[in-house]
Design a protein around this nucleic acid. Sequence first.
DNA 1: ATGCACCCTGTAGCAACTACAGGGTCAAGC
DNA 2: GCTTGACCCTGTAGTTGCTACAGGGTGCAT
Lengths: 136, 136
Amino acid sequence: MKIGELSRATGTNIETIRYYERIGLLPAPGRTAANYRSYGDAHRSRLSFVRHSRDLGFTIEEIRSLLDLSDDPTRECDEADRIATRHLEQVEEKIAQLSLLRDELARIIGRCRGGIAADCRVIEALSDHSHCENAH
Amino acid sequence: MKIGELSRATGTNIETIRYYERIGLLPAPGRTAANYRSYGDAHRSRLSFVRHSRDLGFTIEEIRSLLDLSDDPTRECDEADRIATRHLEQVEEKIAQLSLLRDELARIIGRCRGGIAADCRVIEALSDHSHCENAH
DNA sequence: ATGCACCCTGTAGCAACTACAGGGTCAAGC
DNA sequence: GCTTGACCCTGTAGTTGCTACAGGGTGCAT
Ligand SMILES: [Zn+2]
Ligand SMILES: [Zn+2]
Ligand SMILES: [Zn+2]
Ligand SMILES: [Zn+2]
């Protein structure tokens, strides 16, 4: 499989695949006589793992740890579960933050009655957090 | 006011203040004889506006437009409201995305029963999106 | 032989900071 | 008068996770 085919098979940009190789997330594949990268099934499933983990919001470093773990199937899985749990906590925290933001933005926008900038409650609200009702 | 004082007054990193000046978001202040930046109240309130807008998640470019608007108080405020409304929509979209993510992560983590990596449902789930129940 | 799709390397750009390195300034204390 | 320490300056490079060239080579069909 050449890189374009791997790209289509996994929905990953070609430049991204080369980037993952460069940072050591994917092993360097063999090369054809023309110096083209040549991938097998192992590469494809490793890349799928990476892409799916990225889609779930894991960082590259977290994925590196998760890959190490899946490369050594005799190890205990608790590190994987710890990484995933911490990530879930971060996602929940982010949702909570964004919800505060959303509420505050909705409140600010709701106060605009049109007119000139000097009288706009949106502009006014932005200039000072003390007009806010939550901590966002 | 020297930069350190402005930094404390607005809760902004000194390097960030200089960065905002470099990209033209804050006007270059006057200088003392020793070539130290010297700020006044106008600078402080402009920086507060920027920080608060950043805290609410607006991009630098959005803030540039909002500042232009508040610099010209006779203009209609509808652009400010449009920017804020679009931003609110983006925040809501992000919350929806993260909620899908959270549900999927919680489901994945809930399936782990401990043991070795070869049997771990977390590792398995990461390797293939077709095990997922939503689109995240 | 010429077009076209595909591949290669290496570098630079994005957002929004943050972190130095390597230097200058200024007031206080001994 | 000299050192210590807190502060300030410029300029550059790093962060995360890609993405976009520039400038070239390869392979196959017409
Ligand atoms: Zn308005
Ligand atoms: Zn606020
Ligand atoms: Zn497990
Ligand atoms: Zn999935």
